[in-house]
Design a binder for these strands. Structure first.
Lengths: 240, 240
DNA sequence: CGTATTCTTGATTGGCATCAATCCAGGTGG
DNA sequence: CCACCTGGATTGATGCCAATCAAGAATACG
């Protein structure tokens, strides 16, 4: 059976997210059908995949590029809920109960499904719903980690957590790298951790002086003392 | 068809959480089966429903009483992830990826299902999995609200959010009340909001002096100026 | 009724925010 | 090719909100 996409250059079988948690281990027939109801979309840097006000009728799966989920308050404060890597999902809240926007940090391509189409497909492939539930569970687990960090940790601990978490995400999405690339600005990091840009910058400088990391340039980090960082953050993404 | 519980005084048909999002609108047969694989459990005040280290092989649905989900760090800091009201679920993370404990604030009764039993039942009743997915979606939405509050808001705004949120939860679980009962201590509130007991106490006193609330006693609040509180918290649980 | 626990209030400290200036790389146009 | 501009990053000076330390008041409990 040859996969046919209804609208785009990347087909499921050649998709960078082919091994994503939604597609992998689905049988050929299900993948074919999933492909048939998918729309390929592309967002330019700084563009939005969807915004708070939009009716949340779609589920997205990032194929390539980096994005973020953010929420804004009326007086301009911003909280970043997550950074999006290839394979990640967005728009998993069908009730439109969560108002977040998804913004592209780089050129970004994604698969989009209409909720109704997905619901219909799930009726015939219950395995699909099971997978979506597990994906949701992982998102929740990560969000609980974030709650813990925001509620309990100081600036130094927050940044240590951030670096290790980003390294972990990047490894999962793109494979192991020798240096950690940070595609976001210092402001983004600050808004993710609930601190200010200046504080982020200061802590970067401090842990660099202390030899915990190297900073070839602001967007690239070499972690020199992983265990020390893990102890600071109390975060061990791959076990102790 | 008469419902038969395998272990307890409360049957599904007389369950206080009977109208919970899991059971409601399931057909009689599914409810019967759900009942058959449920275990009724009871926890004393300050006891634990489950703890961080436990293998998370169970899903729980609170029947009566109040509880909380907490995570502790090695140096004693604590973050409360949620307060549990009748009808709420806990243990929704099958991967054991989220280490949280569930503690009882009062005498607490709950339904417990083994994941395996539930998985087997879902094979025959896909509607059940669909419901669990939606429940998980709601939990995630609430947790995202919490992230926003922890990351962006000051002590005053946090407490305003807390009061309105608790009122909303209490209304949903127990029906409308004229006064808001707070079954948790000031320390619990502090650990939920990422601030200290003293700060909680001070803000309570302040908004009481300002006439936003009345405090007949520390555990009961009468909200006098709901709209003002909503504006402080930027939180409108039932729309504007 | 005494003891423990929780809550509240006061005094002081400190970590991070705020305000402000400078640095630096990349892009643009003369 | 270079002067200029711009947005992001860094560093410094100062101030403030909430943490910390400490003590007293209120309430629950054996």
């Amino acid at each position: 059976m040859r996969p046919i996409s209804n609208s785009g250059e990347i087909l499921c079988h050649s998709c960078p997210a082919r091994k994503s948690r939604l597609c992998s281990a689905l049988d050929e027939k299900a993948i074919y059908e999933l492909d048939a109801i998918a729309t390929r979309i592309e967002i330019k840097p700084h563009g939005y995949l969807f915004e708070e006000e939009d009716p949340s009728d779609y589920v997205y799966n990032i194929s390539t590029g980096i994005g973020l989920l953010e929420r804004l308050s009326s007086d301009g404060r911003r909280q970043i809920m997550a950074f999006l890597f290839p394979g990640d999902f967005a728009g998993l809240l069908p009730d439109a109960i969560a108002s977040v926007s998804a913004k592209a940090l780089s050129r970004l391509t994604a698969c989009r499904w209409h909720i109704r189409d997905l619901d219909a497909l799930m009726e015939r492939h219950p395995e699909l719903e099971h997978r979506l539930r597990r994906i949701g569970g992982r998102v929740l687990a990560t969000t609980l980690d974030q709650v813990f960090v925001l509620g309990c940790k100081n600036a130094r601990e927050k940044l240590a957590y951030f670096l290790l978490h980003m390294e972990h995400r990047q490894k999962a999405a793109l494979g192991p790298r020798e240096t950690l690339h940070l595609p976001m600005t210092r402001v983004d990091i600050a808004d993710y951790l609930g601190i200010t840009v200046e504080t982020v910058s200061r802590v970067f400088s401090k842990i660099k002086r202390e030899g915990l990391i190297e900073l070839p340039d602001p967007n690239n980090v070499v972690i020199k003392q992983r265990e020390h960082l893990q102890d600071i953050a109390e975060y061990y993404p791959d076990g102790h």
